[in-house]
Simulated scan of single mutants.
Amino acid sequence: MEKTLFEITKMDCPSEENLIRMKLQGVSDIKNMLFDIPNRKLTIYHSGGIDQIEKLLGELKLGDKKIKTEQTEEINFAENSNQRKLLWTVLGINFLFFVLEMVTGIFSKSMGLVADSLDMLADSFVYGLSLLAVGRTLSRKKQIAKLAGYFQIVLAFIGFLEVLRRFFGTEKLPNFSTMIVVSIFALLANGICLYLLQKSKSKKEAHMKASMIFTSNDIIINLGVICAGLLVNWLNSNKPDLIIGTIVLILVIQGAMRILKLGK
């Protein structure tokens, strides 16, 4: 048995972890995977060569780099029986806030909230794909990934069109107080999701650090929408809201492209 340590520079939240798990799901040589999200490290326990694993990780373009491979005597890996339940929990939280942010974003005229709701939907896709992939054939898993990825791109494209319409139009100012309050709740929801997922890990990885939460793109996005809300009020302009909305939509597109890679 060997274990190989990877550095995954773009693995900053559980969504990337689930993408990696799905990508490597069919590799029979892999016996166990340990994720260290705060330090962006992945340890893979495997038998046989590492070439196929490196190739599959490279296809995700998450900035993977092999650090070292060494022999290990560890052969007993405890399975987490609550993993499926936790995935359903975080999926539910993300989907709930997708609906909440979409509805409040539409009524408050905030593209930042609408775009962040699509980011929440993207995370829901990833967790949902992880659940659907269990017990499915490889071809079925690829079909599901393609469908989710293309649907996400369509939604982001519609979002870009709306940003352009509001930029050149005379849309009313977004409600800055709604932007701030809803984003604070979304930030707390993302923190809960991260905590629940990390709680399922071994004792070494179970201790949640505040620095880990703030390295998550989702947390940064929530803070960005809050700042945009403050700037909307201060500058009496909708431009900060449109800017943060555009940034988030770009991140949604990047997430969709990663999902589509699973369908290849």
Rank of each mutant, 00 (worst) to 15 (best):
I244L: 05
K146G: 00
L60A: 02
K264C: 01
S177Q: 14
I219G: 00
L113A: 07
S81N: 03
S28C: 01
A122K: 13
L91C: 04
G112L: 04
A189L: 09
I158T: 14
T104Y: 06
S110I: 07
L249K: 10
K146S: 02
L231E: 07
Y195N: 15
M208E: 11
F98G: 14
N76M: 03
I50L: 12
L62A: 02
I213C: 08
N238Y: 06
Q71K: 12
T215F: 08
L161D: 07
N80K: 08
S124M: 02
S15A: 14
N217S: 13
K146Y: 10
P240Q: 10
Q71T: 15
N217L: 11
D241S: 05
G48L: 03
A145I: 06
T69Y: 04
S47P: 00
I44H: 05
A206M: 09
K239H: 06
S124K: 08
I106S: 01
E74P: 00
L197C: 06
E54T: 09
F157H: 01
T104M: 09
M179S: 13
S200K: 11
S130C: 13
L62M: 09
S139V: 13
A210E: 14
K142W: 03
Q152V: 02
G63D: 05
N217T: 14
M120N: 13
I221A: 10
K66H: 02
I144V: 07
Y45V: 07
L138I: 14
I192P: 02
I30L: 10
K68W: 13
G255D: 14
R165T: 13
K109P: 06
E79M: 12
L196G: 08
S202N: 13
K41T: 14
L161W: 03
L86V: 14
E54W: 00
Y150L: 15
L87E: 13
L131W: 07
G105F: 09
P240A: 12
N80G: 02
A228T: 05
L42N: 01
G229D: 11
I8G: 01
D51H: 11
F167Y: 15
W234N: 07
S28V: 10
I220C: 10
A115L: 14
V248A: 04
A133R: 00
K61N: 11
I44V: 15
Q25V: 01
K146D: 02
C193S: 08
V163A: 04
G105H: 13
V163L: 12
I50S: 05
R84W: 05
I67S: 12
Q254W: 02
L62C: 01
L56K: 09
E101P: 03
L242Q: 09
M33T: 08
N238T: 06
K61E: 15
I106K: 12
L87K: 02
A256E: 11
A189I: 02
K41H: 04
Q83H: 10
G63Q: 05
S110R: 11
L56F: 02
I93S: 06
F157M: 15
L230G: 15
E16Y: 01
R165Y: 05
I259E: 15
V27Q: 13
Q152Y: 00
I244Y: 04
L60W: 09
Y127G: 04
K3M: 09
T137Q: 14
L231C: 10
T137W: 00
I30V: 08
P240F: 01
I20H: 00
A122W: 08
V182C: 03
W234H: 01
E54S: 11
T4A: 12
S200M: 12
Q152T: 11
